[in-house]
C-alpha cells in the first residue's frame, strides 16, 4: 500500500509556486501621462474594480512595483524619465504598453512623440485602443497573469536570453531617406543625426 500525502499537503515546483504568488499580486506602477491615465483611473475605480484581479495596489514608487503600465504618449523629453523608472524597478518586472500612443505613437506622428515605447524599453504586452476601454486593460492584465504563470521562473531566468531590443528598428527606409534630405543639426550630441549604414 502506497503511502499518500495528507490532504492538506501538495507537491509543486518552487518556480510554479512563486509564479502563482506573483501573478496574483501584481503591483502596478501607473506611468500615466495622458488620456489613457484617466481610463486607468476608471479601471481602478468602483465600476470596473481592478481589485478583483489582484492588481489594484497602485504604487507611485518604482521600487515597490513589478508591473509598469505606460498609459499615454511618451515624448522625447519624457523618455529618459521612463527609462530611468524602468531601470529602477526591481526584478522580476513586466511592462504593459497601454493605448495606441504608447504602442506606436498613435495619431501623433509628429516631431516630438516617440513612435512606440518598445523601441527603447522592453514591452511584454500591448493593449490597443485610443484609449482602450477598461475591460480591455483588465483583459490585458489577465493575459499577463496567465503568461507569468506559464513562463515565469523564480530568479527571472527567462529574461536573460532576450538580449535584442524588442521593438521595431527605428530607422525604416523612408526615414533614412528623409534624414538624408534633412539638414543635420549642428553642435548637439544627443540630437545629432545618427550614422546610417547603407
Amino acid at each position: 500500500m502506497a503511502v499518500g500525502l495528507p490532504e492538506n499537503v501538495f507537491l509543486t515546483k518552487l518556480d510554479v509556486a512563486a509564479n502563482w504568488v506573483r501573478s496574483n499580486s501584481l503591483w502596478p506602477m501607473p506611468f500615466a501621462t495622458a488620456c489613457c491615465g484617466i481610463e486607468l483611473m476608471a479601471t481602478a475605480s468602483s465600476r470596473f474594480d481592478l481589485a478583483r484581479f489582484g492588481a489594484e495596489v497602485m504604487r507611485f514608487s518604482p521600487r515597490q512595483c513589478d508591473l509598469l503600465i505606460v498609459a499615454g504618449r511618451v515624448v522625447m523629453k519624457m523618455l529618459p524619465v521612463l527609462q530611468r523608472i524602468w531601470l529602477q524597478m526591481p526584478e522580476p518586472k513586466w511592462c504593459i504598453s497601454m493605448g495606441a500612443c504608447a504602442c506606436s505613437g498613435g495619431v501623433f506622428d509628429t516631431y516630438a512623440v516617440v513612435q512606440g515605447i518598445d523601441r527603447f524599453i522592453p514591452v511584454d504586452l500591448y493593449v490597443p485602443g485610443c484609449p482602450p476601454r477598461p475591460e480591455q486593460l483588465i483583459a490585458g492584465i489577465i493575459e499577463l497573469q496567465d503568461r507569468i504563470k506559464k513562463t515565469g521562473t523564480l530568479d527571472g531566468r527567462e529574461f536573460v536570453t532576450r538580449t535584442a531590443a524588442t521593438g521595431p528598428q527605428p530607422l525604416e527606409l523612408d526615414e533614412i531617406r528623409r534624414l538624408r534630405e534633412a539638414t543635420p543639426v549642428a553642435g548637439l550630441e544627443i540630437f545629432s543625426t545618427p550614422d546610417i549604414k547603407t
Binding site: W86, V114, G167, A182, A186, L188, S192, T193
Partner: peptide, 28 residues
C-alpha cells in the same frame, strides 16, 4: 536647436525622436 512651428521644419522632425539609447530585457 530647431523652432518646430516654423514652416520650414518638417512635421515628423529631423530624427530627434529616434535618438535615445535602447534598453533590452537582459540588461535591465
Amino acid at each position: 536647436s530647431s523652432y518646430p512651428l516654423r514652416k520650414d521644419y518638417p512635421l515628423k522632425g529631423r530624427g530627434e525622436r529616434h535618438n535615445f539609447p535602447v534598453i533590452t530585457r537582459a540588461e535591465s
